[in-house]
Computed example of a mutant assay.
Amino acid sequence: MQSANPAVHLKSVFLVTDKLGVGGAERSVVLLARMLHRRGIATSVLVMFESGPYETLLRDEGISVIFLGFRSMRHITRDPINTLVAFLRLVFLLRRSRPDVVHAFLYYGYVICAPAARLAGVPVVVAGRRNLGYFKENRKKKALLAVERAATRVTDMVIANSKAVADVTLREEGVAPEKIAVIYNGLPPEAFDDASPAEIDTELPVVLCVANLRHPKGHGYLLEAVALMEERGVSCTLLLVGDGADRTALEEQARLLSADIRFLGTRHDVSALLRRADVFVLPSLSESLSNALMEAMAASVPAVATNSGGPSELLEGRGVIVPPGDCVALADALAGVLKDREHARGLADKAQTWARTHLTLDAMVDRYVEAYQEIFRRKRSRRPSR
């Protein structure tokens, strides 16, 4: 039946993001935009609030970057006049440009752009889900969920970046199962390439964690786990890559522990650090999906992560999974990987093989294009015949 439908040829796609700063969601938007552009699909990136390092990269590739004029997340409700003017400007932009697809990422992107796209008559409207909704759990945030549900009703499809996120979306928003799809993030080819290991001044095994220094990432439990390993006679050098609001508190915690813990801040040589690491660890309390964990898999680094959402999907049978917030289990897992290198190498090889099939950039873009085309086909099949 599906083969009888005429082929769908996408001409233009608008991708919407809050900002173009360095982050997992923004990185995925940029990678998707570049690949769509290289496949001959006219692609524009619409930015709601602020620019960032990725703007130059997009423009150098010939991709249009359009700022929508919303002041900031804080001013969405505090400055209703600006919000209304920017919203109407967006509707007129979409009517004039007539894209085939509007795909909005991150909360404010889809709750504002989905209704705007509908008013503008955009054929396909897609919302991206990239978190487990922890920021909506507080009672004061229930309004956020209500707005999200309303926006979801006017979208054609919700695309989650993990099964865990899809499950939360189904449960909290009541989305019909056929309206949601799961597409993992994709890694560029160079993520699988060999790289020279970073020079780290230590004779101990290296444990690497790459994550923003904030509470949901669970760093405090990781520090306790490393200290517990030290007490048991299993020493290591823990490298923490990333920055964030919890850095000062974590540095103070680390000073009280007898372990080699180093805060490296933001780094642009993660690939080299991965090649130097003996094990990668992700201690998150809540995690939709981790690009850093995916990169560790691509680099064939043994990985330990928590059962906090998407990570357990990535490492199923290919890594070590422990409960979130359990420093004893985390210490046991890390020590086990460091002691049994042969088993750890087998897990890492399985992870890399799986990643080459499921986590490449081409695989991600193929699935997005297929999803957009499938929505077109569904809509065409519903049109009454004349």
Rank of each mutant, 00 (worst) to 15 (best):
A4W: 13
V8M: 06
H9F: 11
F14S: 12
F14M: 12
K19S: 13
E26C: 02
A33D: 01
R34T: 00
M35N: 12
L36A: 01
H37Y: 03
R38N: 12
L46A: 12
F49Y: 14
E50M: 09
E50H: 14
S51R: 12
R59S: 10
R59V: 10
D60L: 08
G62V: 01
I66L: 10
F67D: 00
L68Y: 09
L68G: 08
G69Q: 11
S72L: 09
I76K: 02
D79Y: 10
P80F: 04
A86Y: 08
F87L: 05
L88P: 00
L88F: 11
L94R: 07
D100L: 04
D100W: 07
A104M: 10
Y108C: 04
Y110W: 15
A117H: 02
A117S: 15
A120N: 04
G121N: 05
V122N: 08
V125N: 03
V126F: 07
G128D: 00
R129T: 03
G133D: 06
Y134H: 14
N138E: 15
R139F: 11
K140P: 06
K142T: 10
A143G: 13
T152C: 13
R153A: 12
D156S: 11
I159R: 12
K163D: 12
V168P: 06
E173D: 13
E173H: 15
V175G: 05
V175H: 08
A176N: 11
A176D: 14
I180S: 07
A181P: 00
N185D: 11
N185H: 12
E190L: 07
A191H: 08
D194R: 15
D194G: 13
A195R: 15
E199P: 01
E199T: 13
I200W: 14
D201N: 13
H215S: 08
P216W: 01
G220M: 03
E224Q: 14
E224V: 05
E224T: 07
V226M: 06
A227L: 04
G242R: 09
G242C: 03
D246F: 00
R247M: 08
E252V: 10
Q253P: 01
A254E: 09
R255H: 12
L256S: 14
L257D: 05
A259S: 11
D260F: 11
I261Q: 06
I261F: 02
V270N: 04
S271L: 11
R275K: 15
D278L: 07
F280K: 06
L282H: 11
E287I: 01
L293V: 07
M294T: 01
E295R: 08
E295V: 05
S300V: 05
V301E: 05
A303H: 12
V304F: 10
G309I: 04
L314G: 03
L314V: 06
L315R: 03
E316A: 14
R318K: 14
G319Y: 08
V320N: 01
V322K: 13
P323G: 01
D326C: 05
V328N: 09
L330P: 09
L334H: 08
G336H: 10
V337P: 13
R341V: 13
T353Y: 10
R356F: 09
R356T: 04
T360I: 04
T360V: 02
L361W: 02
D362S: 14
D362P: 04
A363L: 04
D366K: 03
D366N: 15
V369W: 04
I375Q: 10
S381G: 04
P384Q: 00
S385D: 07
